[in-house]
Amino acid sequence: MKKRILLSLSLLVLLIAAVIAAILFSSSSSTKKETAQSAHERTAQTNKNAALLKDLPDAKRSDWELVLVSRDSPQPEMNPDLATVGNIQVDQRIVQSTEQFLAAAQKISPAEHLISGYRSVAYQNTLYEGYIKDEMEGHGTVNTDGSTISREQAIKNVQTYSQPPESSEHNTGLAIDMSDIDSLNESTVAQQVAELAPDYGFVLRFPKDKKSTTGVDYEDWHFRYVGVENAKYMTTHHLTLEEYRSLLPD
């Protein structure tokens, strides 16, 4: 009897040892696999960064055309020197580029027109508060069914299509809204216009798949002047202004 008990205990010990060994082996294999995967991802990222830096323009974050204005980087009133193009105002340094961009866009669609350019912080605040009021009362852009909502919810709604004062690029005089339709809906024309924008120093500021970096939903009408070389580089590498500036020295 004692021999049977001892034999059973010995078998049980061997079984437990085998299970533990299997678990340790599995864990080790998994760790090695994860380590190999992490190493592969790091190598891929390193190669990507090297490719980005290979032909990086000689630019700096402090360059006037690369100023960043957003909810994460608010700026007080910038008071740019302004000039008029059609029915809008822009920084006088981009007048010719804006005129040429508009003319090129109108060759694609004669209905293309400038909608908005420079907006002061004070005017942006007026617009922003008006949008909040409309959303609260149920006749806004998001809340359209006549129901009343809180100011907090209204602000969340508004920030899907308008920026708070000191957070709008229109304060720079370097941003323009341009479309072939007043409703600003997506169109094939908008895509074609976005493709030619870099030739005139502009980029589509808020692309479809970049909300995680810009904080703003896709806007097919909002273009930002960054200079021809910067614009072409950003477009080639599919970079937002935030991502591009992160590659540059101060």
Rank of each mutant, 00 (worst) to 15 (best):
P110T: 08
L82C: 08
H113M: 01
G130E: 11
V90T: 12
D134L: 10
G117E: 07
A122V: 15
V85L: 03
Q106M: 00
Q89I: 04
S109G: 02
Q100I: 09
A104G: 00
M78V: 07
Y131R: 08
A104D: 00
I88H: 13
S116D: 06
Q96D: 10
F101T: 05
A83G: 14
R71E: 01
D134I: 08
S109M: 02
S120D: 03
N79Q: 10
I132Y: 09
T84N: 05
A111M: 11
S70V: 03
E77V: 06
E129A: 02
A111D: 03
P80R: 00
T126A: 00
P76T: 12
S70P: 11
M78H: 09
A104I: 01
Y118Q: 12
A122D: 11
I132K: 02
D81V: 08
Q92D: 15
P74L: 07
E99K: 00
S97Q: 04
S97P: 15
Q92W: 13
A122M: 14
D72N: 01
V121E: 08
S116G: 05
R71D: 11
T126Y: 00
Y128H: 12
V85G: 05
N79A: 09
A105M: 05
A105E: 01
R93W: 15
N125M: 14
A122L: 11
E99T: 04
G130D: 09
T84P: 02
R71G: 11
T98Y: 07
S116Q: 09
E99L: 01
P110N: 08
S116P: 04
R119W: 13
R93C: 15
I108N: 00
A122I: 15
L102D: 06
F101W: 06
D81W: 07
Q100G: 05
T84I: 10
N87G: 01
V95M: 14
E129M: 09
Q92T: 10
